[in-house]
């Protein structure tokens, strides 16, 4: 039982947790932008799957990981564009259309996989890049500074997103569009343009989330490989109360508990595996229900905006 507090286990839990948190961060930070502007995008999972496949396929055929990343972002952005058109111009119900985009991404990634690859293959993905000096720090270095480049970018995204949302005019516009679109509109802010921007940004980041799995962390593409992760990312936005730092906390908590339960099984902690694998989900649901009554969501979330002119 004392084993669980050994350095190996602590390093193992934390470094696994950091890796597991990476795709959540991309997807959930992207989703945060969308929701702060008043759009709930439930299609994240589909954007991730298509991004994962596109980047895997391009990296495999061209041998270029950079092209893989670019195509993942492009595919995510295009799906974001479609989502934006449907929700902003057509005023479609956001939850339902998001599910539609999820199913599209799921089906399309499976179809393309079958047509273009046909079987599970591996690709040489982004390798671990130890950060000079920092990676030499005992314990901490191994946990934080011996990861692949997409992991670092994911964590850097958090302060950047915080800065953009809270310290720039663009962020102010995004927040005002999500809180009171009528007022923003009367002040000359284009609600439609802001929402297009945030949804396309969200799609781009979701595409990256997929790429972070298929060409950096796992280096393999398998049908439905995101396995519900995109939906958890949406939940993490609620969990994080629509704030990048809150999202980071949620992503880390969920991922750490997940890697902790893996270690508990390996260390023979006498908990049935069925219970162990439920822990991160249970915890997330409990925190979700607990926070939802305390934190106010963006007032215009899920509400289409009609200028009425």
């Amino acid at each position: 039982m004392n084993e669980i507090f050994s350095a190996t286990v602590i390093i193992g839990v934390l470094s696994s947790g950091i890796r597991l948190a990476t795709p959540y961060l991309y997807a959930a930070i992207g989703e945060t932008f969308g929701q702060r502007s008043g759009v709930l995008n439930l299609g994240v999972e589909g954007q991730m799957l298509l991004g994962a496949f596109a980047s895997f396929y391009v990296a495999l055929t061209t041998g270029s990981l950079v092209y893989g990343l670019l195509i993942a972002m492009l595919v995510g952005a295009l799906m974001g564009l479609a989502m934006a058109y449907v929700t902003v111009n057509l005023h479609a119900e956001q939850g339902i259309s998001g599910i539609g985009f999820y199913l599209f991404g799921l089906g399309m990634s499976e179809l393309l996989f079958k047509m273009l690859l046909g079987t599970v293959e591996t690709v040489k993905g982004f390798s671990v890049v130890p950060i000079p000096f920092l990676s030499q720090i005992p314990v901490l270095g191994e946990i934080f500074f011996q990861q692949n480049i997409l992991v670092y970018i994911a964590f850097l995204l958090v302060p950047v997103a915080w800065f953009v949302l809270n310290k720039t005019t663009l962020g102010l516009k995004i927040r005002s569009v999500g809180e009171n679109p009528e007022a923003a509109d009367s002040l000359g802010v284009s609600v439609a343009r802001i929402r297009y921007f945030t949804i396309i940004l969200g799609g781009t980041l979701s595409g990256l989330a997929g790429a972070s799995m298929s060409i950096a962390l796992l280096n393999v593409f398998q049908q439905n490989m995101t396995s519900g992760l995109g939906f958890i990312a949406v939940a993490l936005v609620y969990f994080g109360a629509w704030r990048p730092w809150g999202v980071l906390a949620g992503a880390l908590l969920f991922s750490m508990v997940n890697s902790l339960q893996l270690w508990m099984q390996v260390l023979n902690v006498p908990i049935p595996s069925d219970i162990a694998v439920m822990l991160p989900y249970l915890l997330t649901i409990i925190v979700l229900v607990a926070t939802v009554s305390r934190v106010r969501s963006p007032a215009a979330l899920t509400k289409p905006f009609d200028r009425g002119d």
């Binding site: 597991l20 799995m213 962390l217 390996v266 595996s273």
Partner: peptide
């Protein structure tokens, strides 16, 4: 022989971390 069950037939990411965990152990 250390056995872990990840609770899913499709979660590739968790399967990968489960392998990392075994190797670290």
């Amino acid at each position: 022989v250390k056995v872990s069950w990840i609770g899913s037939f499709s979660d590739v990411a968790l399967a990968s971390e489960s392998a990392n965990t075994h190797i670290a152990a």
